[in-house]
């Protein structure tokens, strides 16, 4: 249950281990980062079903694809920037084109990677995965949701999935009664003045921002759009129609991510302005994750200011 703050990658490591116990067809691949991605836990428990491919992400995706062709259910993990960037074409040509049952679960997404700097901070991975036919893209908001996502994509869905996880601890936000479903957003509440469509770590920021705004008499809703593809367009339309200002919040470039997905849909079906909070067209940099969130404006305060300005 959702009662403690934890990194989504830690929840992944636990979920994978449990999944490995109850399903013998699960195989796990990593590219020399199993300590960081937490797949090492599975590897220790089931060494014969764990493949460390070394520093070779492209080969890892091919190997995962081959394993899936023999009926195994592969989870392939490394940092988001390498998984989606270095191996993009392997994901396109093999995993997506042939619609293989390969689960790509990447950790260390976004700027909250921290001190390692821009080379290790994926702020364009959602864009890279979202553009691929047959791909499903999921960004869980906390550990509790991550566990459900991992089980759902293993037990209830056949096909390529990209799951975006983080390095740093995030507060627990999802209620105990919550049940993840692919393509179904979770509505915390709908606002009359503003609605924030958020994903990943920005969900907790959006909740904090909405509380501050409420004290200022601004009725703000929060929606966790954890599945970015396929987008929950029904909920999105409702949110856009019910308020005066629609805001998206993501730890990703405003080009190609959640904000873009929302804009693409609304521009055709219900054209309203979409205010995007995210990384502008730039790379990350070194710093602590808290410092970087402030530096790039990914904070409740920034959301509050943005909404107040938009309502003027």
């Amino acid at each position: 249950m959702a009662n403690k703050s934890m990194a989504t990658r830690d929840a992944y490591g636990e979920a994978l281990l449990e999944l490995g116990k109850r399903r013998l067809d699960i195989v796990v691949l990593d590219a020399d980062l199993s300590g960081s991605t937490k797949t090492g836990k599975f590897g220790k428990a089931f060494p014969e079903r764990f493949f460390n491919i070394g520093v070779a992400e492209q080969d890892m995706i091919g190997m995962a694809s081959g394993l899936s062709l023999t009926g195994k259910l592969p989870f392939a993990s490394t940092f988001a920037v390498f998984e989606t960037g270095r191996a993009w074409e392997q994901i396109r040509q093999t995993v997506c084109y042939s619609n293989l049952n390969v689960k790509l679960v990447a950790t260390h997404s976004g700027i909250t990677v921290g001190e390692d700097g821009a080379s290790h901070q994926a702020v364009e991975d959602i864009a890279l995965m979202r553009v691929l036919p047959n791909m499903t893209v999921i960004v869980p908001s906390d550990g509790y949701e991550t566990t459900q996502v991992i089980n759902t994509i293993a037990d209830e869905y056949f096909g390529p999935v990209y799951v975006r996880l983080g390095r740093s601890k995030v507060p627990s936000v999802m209620p105990e009664r919550y049940r993840f479903k692919i393509g179904k957003a979770h509505v915390f509440n709908m606002g009359k003045d503003a609605n924030i469509i958020a994903a990943g770590i920005m969900v907790s920021m959006a909740i904090a921002a909405a509380e501050i705004l409420k004290k200022n008499g601004i009725d703000t809703g929060v929606i966790n759009m954890s599945t970015i593809k396929p987008l929950d367009t029904k909920t999105l339309l409702k949110a856009a129609k019910s308020c005066r200002v629609l805001v998206t919040a993501e730890e990703h470039s405003v080009i190609g991510g959640l904000g873009s997905a929302v804009s693409e849909f609304l521009s055709e079906h219900y054209p309203v302005p979409v205010v995007k909070i995210g990384i502008r067209d730039e790379f990350g940099c070194s710093g602590s994750s808290e410092e970087l969130l402030k530096f790039y404006g990914l904070t409740p305060d920034k959301i509050v200011k943005t909404i107040k300005k938009a309502l003027k």
């Binding site: 492209q58 694809s65 899936s68 040509q93």
Partner: peptide, 19 residues
């Protein structure tokens, strides 16, 4: 398996062989 982009088949063959 679909192929055409060079350099990828051997990795896939490895995965099948391991499976």
């Amino acid at each position: 398996i679909s192929t055409g982009s060079l350099g990828q088949g051997l990795s896939i063959a490895n995965g099948i062989a391991a499976g």
